[in-house]
């Protein structure tokens, strides 16, 4: 079991909260968060990228000189 050490006074509370968390647990939690983040981002990207692209094209088209 590896206890998480506090590195600075302001981090004392946070480190105290995580005290007792094993390395395996930390790695497992971190990997779970990473995988979930990537999965959610994939969904978000699929739904929004085209909108952002079209919005950028729209601004470029309407603001270019001589567009009026």
């Amino acid at each position: 079991m590896t206890a998480v050490q506090s590195t600075s006074p302001q981090d004392a509370t946070g480190a105290a909260n995580a005290r007792g968390l094993s390395r395996a647990m930390r790695v497992a939690l971190s990997l779970a968060v990473l995988c979930a983040s990537l999965a959610l981002y994939r969904q978000y990207h699929a739904k929004n990228w085209d909108i952002a692209r079209r919005a950028a094209l729209h601004v470029a088209r309407t603001m270019r000189p001589g567009a009026l």
Binding site: D11, G14, N17, L21, R26, V27, S30, V33, L34
Partner: peptide, 19 residues
């Protein structure tokens, strides 16, 4: 809170922070 309390291993922390 996750980054500071769970303290992920460096490689994972860097990836999560990049996202």
């Amino acid at each position: 809170v996750f980054l500071e309390t769970v303290r992920p291993p460096r490689a994972i922390a860097a990836t999560v922070a990049a996202i």
